[in-house]
Amino acid sequence: MLSDVVLSMLWPSVILLAVGPAGECYNQGDIKLPMVISTWIDKESHNVAWETLNTKKSALDAVEAGCSKCEELGGGSVGFGGNPDENGETTLDAMIMDGETHNVGAVGNLRRIKSAISVARKVMEHTSHTLLTGSQATQFAVSMGFKEEDLSTNSSREIYKKWKENNCQPNRWLDVTPNPRISCGPYSPIKDHHGGSEPEGYGLDEGNHDTISMIAVDENGRIAGGATTNGLSHKVPGRVGDSPIPGSGAYVDKDVGGATATGNGDIMIRFSPSLLTVEGMRSGLTPEKSAQEALVKISRFYPSFRGAIIATNIKGDYGAACHGYDTFPFCVVNPALNQTTVKRVNCVKKKEEF
């Protein structure tokens, strides 16, 4: 059952609700649109999206504004100053999708530009492409008027320094020599050795969650979604995760609804979980049940992975599911709630628990 306990002392303007086991419904009220839903707990960014939607701007504007605010805060797993790669550089991934037109813009491994979600929108609006990456994406951003600047901070430099002093632990290498579990590179492949085991959930929690992803639906049912991140810390330079990939990081459809994902992107990208969730809703499943079914497909292959999905249908009914964490928090606001509300769903540790 939904807990009667409301924990509001941590965030004066935010209600934190303890939510019962996966599979139970939320009391969502009568007036469900417009609405915004986003992963994890970032009331400031969520409120910016909601305020944007309430000024009669588009759902697309709301998603861009909310994700941009999170990027501006920086210092964590989103935006500048966080999660350096193996060279000590912070790079960004982002995407934005318009459910009305099915247009998408995305950037991967974006270097030296702070506003990844806004660059992604420029890709959508000013090119016939979907995804630009690396230094060429930086060149595009500069041509669109964005400022090129260092994304590192004293904090991210210190993270990188300590990582190097700790023999580059942890890192993302497999089946190489010298042994990546005890040594820094450069590495070379081990001959005639294939299929090493890969970590499924390292370092993914509320402090290092890899992505903020967001869906907005306006009062007329127009929907948009997006995601932005600086990826996993100590990633191999050049790595692009799931966040900028349509169907993986986010997916929205004007006839059905939308879903976004967060967690171990290198695993989740292999299953297009946001697309799976939307198609589940198209077949008649509730948002929560559809998210659960998408996670089941992943857990069959990676039983210890960590990830979560939030979803809403086009009417504003919403839900969430998660795997591998203890609980998963997400933000939601609509006229019935009247303020950013943080809800928390219990997660499962293995597929049999769904």
Rank of each mutant, 00 (worst) to 15 (best):
P180L: 10
C67R: 08
L151W: 04
G307A: 10
P34K: 05
S8R: 08
G231D: 10
T90G: 05
L73T: 15
P244L: 12
Y325N: 11
L285H: 09
G207F: 02
A308E: 12
D218M: 03
K164D: 01
P189C: 05
R239S: 03
I96S: 10
G29N: 04
E100C: 09
K122E: 15
S135Q: 14
T262Y: 09
A18F: 11
Q169L: 14
L33K: 14
T91E: 13
S274D: 07
G247R: 07
N334D: 14
T138P: 04
G81L: 09
T101R: 06
F330Q: 02
L2Q: 15
L285G: 01
D218C: 04
M268N: 05
H129R: 01
T228R: 06
V63A: 12
Y251P: 03
M1N: 09
N27T: 12
N230Y: 03
V278T: 04
D98M: 04
E148A: 13
Y251H: 13
G105V: 03
M144E: 15
T277A: 03
S155W: 13
T153Q: 08
G195K: 10
T286D: 00
H126E: 14
G231Q: 09
G201S: 11
G196F: 09
G231V: 02
L232D: 10
K147P: 05
S3W: 01
S156Q: 00
Q339T: 12
V5S: 11
P246I: 01
D30K: 14
A216Q: 10
I298S: 07
T52F: 02
N27P: 12
A106Y: 07
N27L: 11
S272N: 11
L131Q: 11
S143E: 15
E353Q: 14
D242M: 14
F330P: 03
G238P: 02
A106L: 05
V5R: 11
V332W: 06
E24A: 12
T327I: 10
C168V: 08
Y187S: 05
K147V: 14
S45W: 03
C322N: 09
L337A: 09
S143V: 06
G247M: 01
C184R: 05
D4G: 11
G74T: 02
P186W: 07
S233M: 14
T260R: 01
T55W: 02
G225N: 00
K56F: 02
S243Y: 02
G319D: 00
E293G: 01
G225T: 07
V78M: 03
V63S: 11
R344W: 05
G82K: 02
K315N: 13
P170W: 05
A18Y: 10
